[in-house]
Amino acid sequence: MRPGFVAVALLVLKKDLAIEFKSREIVYTTLFFAVACVMIFSFAFVMEQGVPVEGAAAGILWIAVAFSGTLALGRTFERERYSETLRALLLAPASRPAVYAGKLLGMILMMTATEIVLTPLVAFFFHAPFFARPLLLAALLGLGTIGFASVGTLFAAMLVRTRTRDVLLPILLYPVTIPVIIAGVRGTAALLQSPPEEPVATLWIGLLTAFDVVFLTLALWTFEPLMTE
């Protein structure tokens, strides 16, 4: 009997997490890269008196998330390619969308782990009141991560076979996910206003949900033909 969709997805997730717990490679490198990004941005956005440009924190947070996310996406499939396990994964008697879902879940968890450290750090460095509305911020970050990772996992998977994957991943991923980044940055910026503009943030959360639904549906639909040689 073929295992069900959820069972396969969880098995793939378990496998990825087991490897990650052993080496902690992706979480550590991604986090370090994200912090390095924040440092570089601080040179651009902190002016002479040591005061950051108003509203820069939201942009810095999201750019750090997007850049470090790209790094993690590249690594998780590079690992499969390097140990030649991708073919085994695709040959397994399981539905391809379930494999995709498992990979996506792992990706979302790793990006979330980075964000949990990154968000307080940006709030600390740039005096940003991120935690005035913690639930709305969590919703923005969570939905944004799902949208970014859903396209990213699909693109990273399909690019594994190409020679120029390192260059092509950001080239393809950023234009498609710009709407997600815009929604995330604008929504977060609305929360940083005093008082926080909750209706604006909720509007962006609604849009992010719409993007997530579209991206996830398309990715689950196209993963099978894209991964078939």
Partner: peptide, 13 residues
Amino acid sequence: YGGPGSEKLAAAM
């Protein structure tokens, strides 16, 4: 720049 089989990747785009 995608090399052989890039038509499919482009289709996703």
